[in-house]
Write a protein that binds this DNA or RNA. Structure first.
Lengths: 115, 115
DNA sequence: ACATAGTACCTTGCACAGCAAGGTACCTTG
DNA sequence: CAAGGTACCTTGCTGTGCAAGGTACTATGT
C-alpha cells in the first residue's frame, strides 16, 4: 500500500525520466568516459534523475547496439574489471538534436504550467 | 522505413510526453471546463505536446477513475452531445504538486544539457 | 588456504503511458 | 434518406524504466 491521499510522487518522476535518462547519460559520456556504476552514482546525485542498475544496464546496452556509445574494458586499481563507455560521433549528433527537442518540449510544458 | 542517420524524433518526443500530457490537460481544465476533442485541438497547437484521441480518451478515463476530474454531459449547439471535464479539488492538489516536481526535474535535465 | 565482504557486471519479468487504427452513434444538410 | 461532419470510445502493440535476483572478480582478515 501507498500514500492514497494524492499521487505517489515516485511513479510520476519515473514517468518523467522516460526518454531523458539516456540523453543525460550521453551528455555525461560526452565529457569523459565512465563505467556503469559510476554513471549510477552521478545520476543519483541529481535526485530527480536517480536511476538504478536495472535501468542503466539495459539502457547502455541499447545505446551500444544503436551505435551511440563505444565500450572498452579496463582493469580496475582494486576490484573486478570495468567496462568504460564513451560517446561516438553518432551519439554526439543525436545528443545535439535532443537538445533542441528538449528545449521545445520543456518550453511547451512551462507554458501550460504557468498559470 | 525511416531516417536511419540518427534517431527518429517522433519516438523521442513521444517518450518525453510520458507523464506530462496528463498534467497539461489538468492545467487546461483548471481554467475552464472542456470536452475531449477540444483538448486534442489545444494540445496540437503546441506541437511538442500533440496527442491524438488514442492518447486523450484513455488518459481522461484514468483521470476520472482517479478522481482528478469530474464530467458532465452537455448538448452541443450542433452535433452529438459532449462530455465536459472539469478539475476537482483533488486534481488541483495533484497538479500543484506536479508543478514542483516538474521544476525539479527540468532543472536537473537543463544542468546535464548545458555544456 | 579459505571464508567474507565489496565491487562490478548483467538478466528477467512486470507495469504502464502513449499511439495508430478501427469502430459506433448522434446531428445536420442537401 | 443518404452523406458528411462531429464526438464518443476501444483494442493491441511498443518501448522504457524498475525491482529483484544472479554471477564473477578482487582484496582482506583469520
Amino acid at each position: 500500500m501507498f500514500d492514497m491521499s494524492t499521487d505517489p510522487p515516485r511513479k510520476t518522476m519515473s514517468q518523467l525520466r522516460r526518454g531523458t535518462v539516456g540523453y543525460c547519460v550521453m551528455a555525461l559520456l560526452g565529457r569523459r568516459e565512465r563505467y556503469a556504476v559510476e554513471l549510477v552514482r552521478e545520476l543519483a546525485a541529481h535526485q530527480a534523475l536517480a536511476a538504478g542498475q536495472g535501468t542503466i544496464y539495459p539502457l547502455l546496452s541499447r545505446l551500444r547496439s544503436d551505435g551511440m556509445v563505444a565500450t572498452e574494458w579496463k582493469e580496475s586499481p582494486s576490484g573486478p574489471p570495468r567496462r568504460y563507455y564513451s560517446l561516438t560521433d553518432k551519439g554526439r549528433a543525436s545528443l545535439e538534436r535532443f537538445r533542441g527537442e528538449w528545449k521545445q518540449f520543456s518550453d511547451a510544458v512551462d507554458t501550460f504550467m504557468e498559470d
